[in-house]
Design a protein around this nucleic acid. Sequence first.
DNA 1: CGAAGCTGTGTTAACGATCCCATCATGGGG
DNA 2: CCCCATGATGGGATCGTTAACACAGCTTCG
Lengths: 345, 345
Amino acid sequence: MKRAEEGQAGALTMQKIAELAGVSAMTVSRALKSDASISPETRARILDIVSRIGYVPDATARMFASRRSGFVAALVPSLNNSNFADTVRGMEEAFGPAGLQLLLGDTEYSLSREEDLISALLQRRPEAIVLTGGVHTPAARQMLAKAGIPIVETWDLPKAPLDHVVGFSNEAAGAAMVHYLYERGRRNIGFIGGATNLDTRGSERRAGYARAVRELGLSRSRVVTFGKPPVTMSQGGEALDLMLKQWPEVDAILCVSDLSAFGVLMECQRRGVAVPQRLAIAGFGDFEVARCCHPRLTTIAVDCQGIGRRAAEIVLSALEAKKSGEVLPPETVVMPFEVVARETV
Amino acid sequence: MKRAEEGQAGALTMQKIAELAGVSAMTVSRALKSDASISPETRARILDIVSRIGYVPDATARMFASRRSGFVAALVPSLNNSNFADTVRGMEEAFGPAGLQLLLGDTEYSLSREEDLISALLQRRPEAIVLTGGVHTPAARQMLAKAGIPIVETWDLPKAPLDHVVGFSNEAAGAAMVHYLYERGRRNIGFIGGATNLDTRGSERRAGYARAVRELGLSRSRVVTFGKPPVTMSQGGEALDLMLKQWPEVDAILCVSDLSAFGVLMECQRRGVAVPQRLAIAGFGDFEVARCCHPRLTTIAVDCQGIGRRAAEIVLSALEAKKSGEVLPPETVVMPFEVVARETV
DNA sequence: CGAAGCTGTGTTAACGATCCCATCATGGGG
DNA sequence: CCCCATGATGGGATCGTTAACACAGCTTCG
């Protein structure tokens, strides 16, 4: 019964096509590959039959026979974040045409969840894996090393990379924004970010803030941490309250992301705090909301999609090299970031 | 060389484990399944060896041998949209524990891209497929019917469902918001949405708007369409300009999503248009930005994550039924939506 | 003109797990 | 004491495709 239904599709196999075309299964297989040696006439005849009868090759069997899964695993802290979604899109753009399927995992900013996902995804024998960030559990590092596939860490510049890297220095970005605020005359600069170190990129930005404040000889650092990542817009607003209570003299706030910066901005409007006259606000990530809100948010722009695209290109060339037995030496691509001056500073 | 590296992991097979444990490969297989008939001692001994030596079963081979892929395909119009990202998260929460891996595809609001993705994903022999919306190309419908797997269409209530449905009436939602605006005394209500019919949910909402305007006997409908989906925040602002030029008397605007509504709101602030006194604004989707902006956006809330979770539950029960040869009758789950009154109306 | 190389195709043997059935103990009931 | 049900394990066959090699028929070139 169930068999019969599936029979239509399930029974269709290369062998059947081969019989219809009067060739061997192998020839059908060759007809479906672009680079195989087969006469144009035979290929045309087979492809015609294939399309007319609606045969779809079984990718599972192909993977199994060729020992190539056609998968690339990618882990992001959150899919519900336009920056990472852009990176995923960049990867898809490059992997799709190459016939590679992206296996996505959402770590929810948790290293242990990352470890679980790595172990689960490795069962699928991906041909490469793209990670976000440079911090992983020891078990995860071990599994990855043992997997023997190209690895790309993104969005960060790890001290001890596992393999390839496509990222930028979040620490430098944080410092750069402090310098920008300083240039614009701000002297009492605060920082709002997450309460944990789970978002390592956020922690790096905070470290950059602290370094710059020290370097510039500003009297003290004013840091309000709030909530687990991802830090929400609303939490930005709540953090502003704490910030103003503790350091009423603060005249500029650097936020871990545009989302929290937006929350701060809206809370300022509710309280009648003049932005940027009384308080300057800076974000990170150049989210759409930062370009559109009023006043427009000064922020740091990164080419998120470019990170994904570059990561994918590295994976593709590593896989290409692997065909001829080579192993590409680890490569680190440093992506630029840019302070985007708008209206909140 | 390359072989040698992979040798560590690649050479490990059930046969090896079986030899080490002094049993047959079949017994190792049983030890790794939870419901197989095997003695507790044997299982414990095998599992001990497995974990000590770090053997990871090859999911590809398992898929192939058991004719079960462990995949569920899911197509969304855009990953970079918090509503759909939430739906994906809802699915992941339900599929993960069930050992199913989500294969995600991003249709970019294009039916032909959806068709391509369906054809590509079907090669992976997913056990079920979750789609967004109820409109698909004829070729796509045919492929899906032929695949003989459970299908769930989400985020809409298709007239002719392919199989199961978890959605709500976008048309009714659009109409409901018009009625709400009417109750609040607005009589000159406009609509801002995308210029194409690619976003079928958006088109439905517009249809609901048009119907409600007619029903309420409002003099005319005022529709500004702008850009391809996804309609951005900035496009909302630009559309406001067109709206005010064409119909200066408009006193309320219903937007296809919170993102465009937010763009409208910000543009109002730049122009000094008082919201809601002079102009009421309503959005759709209850995005975080709607909850956090100032003034807070009146919108329509849907349980996006719940849609994903319910869709996954239906898939799981359909797969469960399939084991015993049954085919579940098509089920339609209507999710509620709710007008969330805030400060822009 | 024969050796060598190329092209197009077929044959065979995997790939690594699971399925189905057979087999062998073991123990309880007649 | 024997028979049969039950539980635990093993032995092949098998899933659909591709890799590797074989080979026939041509062309090319010394």
